[in-house]
Amino acid sequence: MIRLENIHKSYRMGKNKLHVLKGIDLHIKQGELVSIMGSSGSGKSTLLNIIGILDNYDEGKYFLDKTLIKGLSEKKAAFYRNKMLGFVFQSFNLIPFKNAMENVALPLYYQKIPRKKRNKKALEYLEKMGLRPWAEHLPNELSGGQKQRLAIARALITRPKVILADEPTGALDSKTSMEVMELMRQINHEGITMIIVTHEQDIAEQTDRIIHLKDGRIENDAISTETKQKVFETLVEEEAAVV
C-alpha cells in the first residue's frame, strides 16, 4: 500500500539546512496497523505528512497504492487526499463554524456528492461514533474525546485506504485515549491501513508494528513482542539521555 524508498527531507531555515529525514525505506502493506515512535524532533510528523501528501520530499520515491507521488499538481494531490487518505490530528482540526454533521460531511462535498446524501451518510458515521445526538452541535461544544471521534468519523466517511493519525490521543486523558484507540483498532479490522504517530507506550502496544525513528532514520522496525519491548526500552534511554 505504502512504499518509501530512500526518502530525504530538509527544512531550510534561513541559511541553514535542517536535514530531518535521512533516507527512509519503509513498506507498509494494506490492512496493517502501524505506530511510529521516536523522541521529539526525530521526524515522525514530517514522515507522516509526506505520506499524507500534505508536504513534499526532496529525494527518493514514494508510492501510494503503486502510484508514484512526486511533483503532483495540486489538483491531483487533492484527489488522492480525498479518495485514498484520511487524517486524524492531535489538535482535531475541525472547522469551528460548522456543526458536527457538516464537519463530517465536508470530504464528501469535495466529491460533489449531493447535500442530502452527504448529510445522511454523515449521520450514519456519527451514529457509529456514538455522536448522533451531537450532530447539530459546534465543535467547541464537544469534549476532547468527542472531538477526536468526530475527526475520525470525518476521516472515515470517504472510505479511505489509509488513515494517518498524528498523536490522535495526545490531547486526551488516558481513559478517553483507550476508547479512541479501541475505535481505531475496529476501523483497522475493517481493512483500512492505519499509521499512528504516538509517544505513548500504551497506544503503541496495541498496534501490530512499531517503527522507531531516531534522528531521521529508522532505528528499529518491531513486530514481535520482544523487539517491541526493546524499542520501548531504548526510547526510555533516549529520553533519559536528553534529560
Partner: peptide, 16 residues
C-alpha cells in the same frame, strides 16, 4: 488559512 489547510487535507482543490 488554517481552515483552508483543513479543507485541502480533506481534498479541496485550489479551484474550489
Amino acid at each position: 488559512t488554517k481552515e483552508i489547510g483543513i479543507r485541502k487535507a480533506l481534498g479541496a482543490t485550489p479551484r474550489s
